[in-house]
């Protein structure tokens, strides 16, 4: 497995800020790219997968307690 295409540092930000940052950045990456979001707000664990579901993007997984990988699907 290859690593993420890019890392988005949202440590210290409260939800919904990490989700807003993700929504802003992911469409700028090519389809298939993986964005790793670093976030330590506990709500990110629910809200990043929920955003992916609502937006039709792939939630690859939580790779550490504070990092989440998302792949641009469309």
């Amino acid at each position: 497995m290859t690593g993420p295409t890019e890392v988005l540092d949202c440590l210290g930000q409260r939800c919904p800020l990490p989700v807003i940052a993700l929504a802003r950045r992911l469409p700028e990456l090519p389809v298939g790219a993986v964005l790793r979001v670093l976030a330590d707000d506990p709500a990110a664990a629910v809200d990043i997968p929920a955003w992916c579901r609502m937006r039709g993007q792939e939630f690859v997984g939580r790779v550490s307690p504070t990092s989440y990988d998302v792949r641009r699907e469309r």
Binding site: V19, A43, V46, D47, A50
Partner: peptide, 13 residues
């Protein structure tokens, strides 16, 4: 966030 929304896996903010 609410443990209920968390358990359901729905948007919490």
């Amino acid at each position: 966030p609410s443990h209920v929304l968390e358990a359901m896996g729905v948007l919490s903010h």
